[in-house]
Amino acid sequence: MINAVSLFILWLFVWSLLNWVPDTKQLIMGVFVAFFMTFMTVDTFGVASPSGKVKRAGFFGIVKKVFWFVCYTIVFIWECIKANIDVAWRVVHPTLPIRPGTIRVKTGLKSDAGLTFLANSITLTPGTTSVDVDKFKGYGYIHVLFLKDGAVSSDMRLPVVDKFERILKRIFD
């Protein structure tokens, strides 16, 4: 129930952003649209965590999660800009300095949202693209643009993945 109410507020907020500056007529229309959208999407977003019970976070917990989410955004934008400069340098280099390969890394994240965010941020950070995620074994398959020499082993760790995983664990798990 609390899930449906928060979804309703979210869709109303998006609607009022879509036709900015909101006035009374738009808001009345938006209530109907948001109600319909809540009805459509509550099954998709309202799924409980895989362990079966939903852990309620208190007020302090939510504040902490929002704080870590802001941290995640800052780190993510910084890594994204670094990634772009790195890739642009490799593109214009005459000899194309790439050593591509697909490797397997282990993740400790469990929830769906955490894995989705991890895969998305892996794709936009330096030299890596996530190819597949094996949720039950906790493996992620990552295509790397430039592998260092001694780094090819069976279960390796990338520093970027570790950094994102540490932050995302505090938000979603």
Partner: peptide
């Protein structure tokens, strides 16, 4: 990123080989 991920997975599953300079390929 979601569509890039889906395209990479689709390319692997449809059998496109990585290029010659590839060091290691644990997904195939």
């Amino acid at each position: 990123p979601v569509s890039a991920h889906a395209l990479a997975r689709g390319a692997y599953r449809s059998g496109v080989k990585p290029c010659e300079g590839t060091i290691v390929d644990q997904y195939s």
